[in-house]
Each structure stands twice: as C-alpha cells, then as structure tokens.
Design a protein around this nucleic acid. Structure first.
Lengths: 341, 341
DNA sequence: CTGTTAGCGCATTCAG
DNA sequence: CTGAATGCGCTAACAG
C-alpha cells in the first residue's frame, strides 16, 4: 500500500493525505481523522526511503561497530543501547549500527556521512586526541561524544567525572590509612583511563604519597586481566593494601586474586571498583559487598539521545556538554589496612 | 557531491558513472578505473535513500530493542552484535535497531516492515509459541530466528542444542554420583529455558531419579537471582549436591551462595553453568575453574548474518536451519559429591 | 561500450 | 481547506 493507493481509496489527493498524516495545520479535523483511520486500517506506513529522499532527513542516528574486540564493545553495551532506545523511541528514531570495514574507522564514518544514512552520530570511547571527532567537526556533521577529547572546537559531549571518581576513591583509601594503593584500569590513550589516572595521582600528591609506577596498570577490562594483574601486584614486597579496579569485570578477577593469596578483602587488601550499574551484576550483593564509584551508563545513554535531539534541533553545540559527578558508594570491600598475619 | 556532479566532472553520463561504480560488466575497464578514482577523490558516495528507492532494497537488517529490561538484552548482546557485525561488514549491510514503542512489539515489527526500512529481520529470544514469528511468516517478510519456536511453517533459524546441553550436564553429574541436582535457568515460556528443563528431566528419568519440583527454578539471569535462589536451594534438607546455572552471571551468584554456606565448590556442591563465551568473563579462570556447557554466541551471530544473506538470496528457508551441539567442558567446579563435615 | 528517458514514493511549491 | 505539478538522487529499460 502506498500513498497513491490510500488516496484513491479515500477519494482524496496524495497531497491531502500526506498533509493529514504529517500533522499539517491546513487540513480539516474531519479529514484528518478519516485519513488516520484508513491508514491504520490498511496498515499504511510511508516508505521511509522515499520520505527521506524528499525531506532530506533520515530519522536515524549512527554508531559504529568496531569488528575488533576493543573495549568499546563490552558488557556495558547492552545497557548503553538500552538507554538510547528508551529515549529514541519518543522521537521514532532508529539506531543504525554500521560495521567497520577493513578496520578503517575514519573511512567508515565518511561513508556513513556521504551516503546520508544517518542524521547524526554517537562517538564512544574517545582518545585524548581523537581523530574521529576532528573529522566530524571538519565535516560539520552533527554528533555527540560519549566521553571527552582535547580539541579546541566546541562540540556536544557527555562524560562522567572520571578524574573525580578516582580522586575520591583514592582519597577515601588514604583516609582509611592506606599508603600503597594500586590501580588497574582500561587501556592507555583512552581519555577516561587517563583522567582516572590523573585523579589517582592528584589524590596521592595532595597527601604527599609517592607514586609507585609499578602500581599503575592499564589493560583491557576482563576478569582475566584483573586476576593476572592483581596477582602480580600482590607478589611485590611490600604489596599494595588497596586496589582500584576500572570495571566490575576487572574487580571480579581482583577479588579472586586477593582470595587466592589468602588475604581478606576489605582487611589486608581493600578494593574499590568502578560500577556502570548492570542489572545482571550487582556490587552490593558480592561477598564482601563491593565499594564502588557508581554512575549509570544506562542513564548516560538516555541523556545522550536527548542531547542528540537538541543538536539536531539546531541548539548551539557549545551549550551542550555535561560532566556527571560519580558517587562513591561505601561498602565492605574497603576498610582500614590490616597487617598480614 | 551527487551523481550528476560527478558525471559532469568526468564528462560522462550519470548512467555510465552509476554503472561503473556498481560493477556492471558493460563498462570499459579504463572508464571504470577513471570513475572510481574520481569518486574516491571527490569523496562521492551514493545517497543511500535515493539508491534504495530506486532499487527497492535497503542494505540493512533490523532488530528490535525492547525497552523493558528483558533478558533478551543482556550482557551477551555485545558479543552477539559483534558477531553479526563481523559478517555483515562483508556485504556492506547495516544493522538497524528500532526501539519498541509502547511495548507493542508486534506493532513495531509491522511499522518496520511497511516502512521498508530493512530487508530482513533477526528475531531473538523466542517463546514456545512466538507470535512475532507467526506474524513475520504471515507477512512473508524474510527473517532468521535465533532460537526455536513451535510453528508448522518452514522458516530460517539457528539454535544451540539446549536440551542436549542440560541432558549432558545432568548425566555427567549423575555419573559422578549426584542424585539431588537442581537447575536455575531463565524465565519460563522461553524456548531455550523449556528445552533445557526437558534435557534435565530426560537425564533424570533415564536413571530413574525422581524430579523434585523445588529443584527447578526459573528466573532472570543475574548474579543476584543466582545468589538468592541458590541460597534457598541449599537451605533445604537434604540440599541439592549439584546446581546447573543457566548463565555465567547466575553462576557467579551461585558460587557466592555455596561459599557463604561454607560448602566447597566441586565437593559438597558441584556447579555446571552455561557459558556463551565472553571475552570479559572466563570460566576457566574462576576459582575453582568452572565446568560449563559452552557455545559461542559470537559465532552464532556470525552464522545468523550468513543465513540472512542466504535468505535474501532466495534460498528456500526450509533448507536454512541448524542446531549447534553444545560442548561440555569439564573443570573443577564439578566433582563427585562429598558429604558435609 | 555509452547515453536518453522514465520512474521509485513521497513532500512540497504554487494555484485555486 | 484541497489539488496538480515538480523534484529529491539514483537505477534500469530502452536505444544507439
């Protein structure tokens, strides 16, 4: 069923039917009602491609799927998407996931733009100097960045206060009396990872505690790396009495490593992990319950979708950026350091 | 830059340029080369909407995003998508994720179909009698089902042998000497969940072991439910000596519950979990390492994308269906039952 | 091997 | 308030 058919059924012109369906004011209420009913009855829905060709807007936002196993596509993905979906549903917008071909991400962005498949894009997992962001700005293509990057041109972004999160967590551990604090975080180069390290360093510096370079570890987020790196950390003499874990998965591995060394969690070794808030993995239910820096990635998804709509509505991008505070949730995995028996 | 502009630059007609770019045979190699070069240089890429309108094919497959927190959108999502992406990249196909509005999934499917935004769909998490599948068949819209449903009309699907997985796991536990075996699996109504229960029951029946209805639990997949349900199971007298967990997240909770009761894993209580194979959560690294029924959901994603292409190529759907065997990987979390001290 | 012409289905001028 | 004509950018018959 196409517009023409529907118009014929109704004995109206295509124009009128189109106007009725798209909420134009110059259609009588009676006609509009009649048209809507008919559309519903025949299951008519405009051919999206024809519509897009005519109006030049797509009704979809794009996000790239890296086909390597990068951390940008981890277990948090489902929650982030879920948040996006919740908000995008309001505006009947779709999310187009385009796979990256030949590992050339920039090329993938360019194809997506020039083929006019999306109205805007979401960029995730930025590095300190992110060439994707630079490219999108240069191409004047609308986007919202999840995270931050160092570039001198205004653009829309949302990030959590990674620096503050780790500063807060580190300070808390210092307050508890810890002096040898380690961190196992994400890969180097990613802004979030660098920011966290910054917060960690700031907190130590403020108290005049020296940084032990062996205690700063960057790796992929997985229980496996958490386990391996924590084991290594705990093999040093003296070993760290507290470990910051960059993700819940990392924390699971760290938990195991601490236990396998025979240390008690929250006693000989304290742990604080960053928690994106997953419905399927709950920090408060761990044993011991886990102290976390908490920030819902689902909420971030919702908000980013909202920002996207504002960008597309023409709001100046320099007004569209937010840093979300991260909450430190104290639980049992962090406590005053206890000397090994 | 549009086709017309490019054609003018080259002093050729739109048709020739179009043909050159789309690999039609009746273009001289010299011209094709010249055109490709120019396209690359000017960054030309066909307007996808115009192209789609003209050829009637979209180059995208659809998948619905439920906005409730259903298990269809769990931590395995990233791996499944990652698999899809890997394969779809070959054919330059996109993945369109459309949010479900007003919780009316059927309506969402219908809108997606009639608006011609996708060439085919992927349906996940089917129930025993799945109305979405029934609807797609009735609408003659191409799709591949991830999972199985009871319907009498041929259609394309891929599933793992859930029944066999749990039969195998249960039989293994029986062989080890267990007689009180419990299972904590996904929500009732979902085919995979029912099939697993079937396999479990078959294995018990074969050995003449009675089913204790208290030992069969269905719930969402999360560490929290795993913990809660396992605690309940272990409070019975006599308690089960083995527990089957439907997911890795569930298993994490079960691990905790067993420990919190003071039982040793693989001794007083054995555990076997189903493992979709996540890069960020590794069964072999747990302590004790976890016996699993293993099947890569990423591989399933790759294969489903492949099947989708076959469906779109017109291959009869009755030829397109597969059941993948599930591997039982023996590790330390399962052993002969040991009496509590 | 290349060009001319006519849609694909819709939204939108411009007239009434 | 409604309708007839034009174009969005591309592909596919049909000619040459």
């Amino acid at each position: 069923m196409k517009l023409k058919d529907l118009a014929e059924q109704l004995g109206l012109s295509q124009t009128t039917v189109s106007r009725a369906l798209n909420g134009y004011p110059e259609v009588s209420e009676a006609t509009r009602e009649r048209v809507s009913q008919a559309a519903l009855r025949y299951g008519y829905s405009a051919n999206a491609n024809a519509r897009r060709l005519a109006i030049g807007r797509v009704g979809a936002i794009g996000i790239l799927m890296p086909n390597d196993r990068s951390d940008r596509f981890g277990p948090h993905t489902s929650e982030f998407f879920s948040g996006l979906a919740e908000r995008l549903a309001h505006d009947e917008m779709d999310l187009l996931m385009s796979p990256v071909i030949d590992n050339s991400e920039i090329a993938a962005y360019q194809r997506l733009i020039s083929s006019k498949r999306v109205d805007a894009m979401i960029v995730t997992g930025p590095t300190l100097i992110d060439e994707r962001v630079a490219m999108l700005i240069k191409a004047k293509f609308p986007f919202v960045l999840h995270g931050q990057t160092n570039i001198d041109v205004p653009h829309a972004w949302l990030d959590i206060d990674n620096c503050g999160a780790f500063r807060q967590a580190t300070t808390h551990l210092l307050d508890l009396g810890h002096r040898r604090i380690a961190m196992i975080d994400g890969l180097k180069g990613h802004t979030f990872s660098e920011h966290r390290e910054l917060g960690y360093r700031e907190a130590l510096k403020e108290r005049g505690v020296m940084v032990d370079p062996r205690f700063i570890v960057h790796d992929r987020f997985s229980d496996e790396t958490g386990f391996r790196e924590a084991q290594k950390l705990l093999s040093y003499t003296p070993h760290p009495t507290a470990i910051l874990a960059g993700s819940m998965m990392t924390a699971l591995g760290v938990f195991r490593a601490v236990r396998s060394k025979g240390y008690q969690l929250g006693k000989e070794v304290s742990i604080i992990a960053h928690d994106d808030v997953f419905p399927y993995l709950n920090a408060s239910n761990m044993v011991p319950s886990m102290t976390t820096t908490r920030s819902s990635i689902r909420a971030a998804g919702i908000r980013i979708a909202e920002m996207l709509v504002r960008v597309l509505d023409g709001e100046p991008v320099e007004d569209i950026h937010e840093v979300w505070p991260v909450e430190l949730v104290l639980r049992q995995s962090s406590g005053p350091p206890v000397l090994s028996a």
